[in-house]
Computed example of a mutant assay.
Amino acid sequence: MTQTVTITRVAEVKARFTPWDWPWAEQNQDKIEANWQRRLVKTPKMFNGRVLLLRDIEVTPELCRNTYFEVDYADMIGWMDLGHPDPGVANGFAMGALRGADGAFICGVMSGDTANGGRVYFPAGTPDRADMQPDGSVDLATSLTRELFEETGLSEADYHVEDEWIVVQRWPAVALMRMVTLPVSAEEGAKRIRATIAAQDDPELSDVRIVRGVEDIDPKTMPLFLQSFFRWSFDQR
């Protein structure tokens, strides 16, 4: 895969889990363990659970098909920190593009206790076992709303989720996004989220940031796929 950014409007997303033994992880356990221990020194609250990585994706305007496999979180972090040495794998996650009624977007600032401390992006998380269904499908729509609630306190009654998906591919990051719109301004939404963060015992976010236009894009803290999404989104207006 290349570093080219591809953004596609998609009517439907279908994701499935298929068991697979990841050769790269099997062959690099020493490096993965050393990296994990190094990470724990800085962020001791990290937990080595099981997550789903993307192995294959097919995208058309009608349908996006994803194939996931399961790995240790430490495997994924090692792969990321070592520069994504297996180019056939990606982190494919559902993400709600949260915005106010005024059209301004609201991003979260990740807490220093998380693996991505200080990074700025919409609430999201790598799919995990909670998203796996008995029929083998992976429920990305529920993953999206769950992450929104966990990080911001916003429930499905608080916003409108568009049916359409926006698939942003900048391998090895694949964001499967939906527009999520609050009935209040971005300022009001940010105020509410900040109150939620202040009341949480162990918040994933340290703050929020409002993005009204391209001038608010921060290359130092925002991942490249999100910078591309913002430029694309503002160009649509």
Rank of each mutant, 00 (worst) to 15 (best):
59 V>Q: 02
145 T>V: 08
153 G>D: 10
162 E>C: 12
137 S>T: 15
77 I>M: 15
224 L>W: 11
125 G>D: 07
120 V>G: 01
206 S>N: 03
117 G>C: 08
81 D>N: 12
130 A>I: 03
223 P>N: 01
64 C>M: 13
7 I>L: 06
182 L>H: 03
201 D>S: 10
76 M>Y: 14
120 V>Q: 08
114 T>W: 06
209 R>C: 10
25 A>W: 02
87 P>R: 00
223 P>H: 02
164 E>T: 14
104 A>F: 12
184 V>M: 12
12 E>H: 14
195 A>L: 07
130 A>H: 15
107 C>R: 09
107 C>G: 04
199 A>I: 07
40 L>S: 01
233 S>G: 00
50 R>L: 15
158 D>V: 11
45 K>L: 14
146 R>M: 12
134 P>M: 05
237 R>N: 12
208 V>N: 09
77 I>D: 15
186 A>H: 01
124 A>F: 13
230 F>C: 12
96 G>H: 05
73 Y>G: 04
213 G>S: 14
37 Q>T: 12
140 L>D: 01
173 A>Y: 15
222 M>T: 00
154 L>M: 09
30 D>H: 13
140 L>G: 00
165 W>A: 02
185 S>M: 07
171 W>C: 09
216 D>C: 06
64 C>T: 10
7 I>C: 07
83 G>E: 07
140 L>W: 05
60 T>M: 06
161 V>K: 13
29 Q>V: 06
84 H>K: 12
191 K>I: 05
199 A>R: 07
178 R>T: 03
217 I>R: 02
52 L>H: 01
208 V>P: 07
222 M>E: 10
177 M>D: 09
108 G>V: 07
229 F>T: 01
197 I>G: 02
101 A>T: 13
197 I>L: 04
205 L>W: 03
157 A>P: 00
14 K>H: 14
185 S>F: 08
140 L>Y: 05
163 D>R: 12
4 T>P: 06
23 P>K: 05
30 D>T: 08
16 R>Q: 14
125 G>F: 03
45 K>I: 10
108 G>Y: 03
164 E>C: 09
7 I>K: 04
22 W>V: 15
42 K>M: 15
192 R>S: 11
96 G>T: 06
195 A>H: 07
207 D>S: 05
81 D>K: 13
146 R>F: 09
158 D>E: 11
62 E>L: 09
203 P>E: 00
228 S>A: 15
44 P>M: 08
176 L>S: 13
43 T>S: 13
146 R>H: 11
232 W>S: 10
212 R>Q: 10
180 V>S: 11
172 P>S: 04
214 V>C: 14
33 E>R: 14
73 Y>V: 07
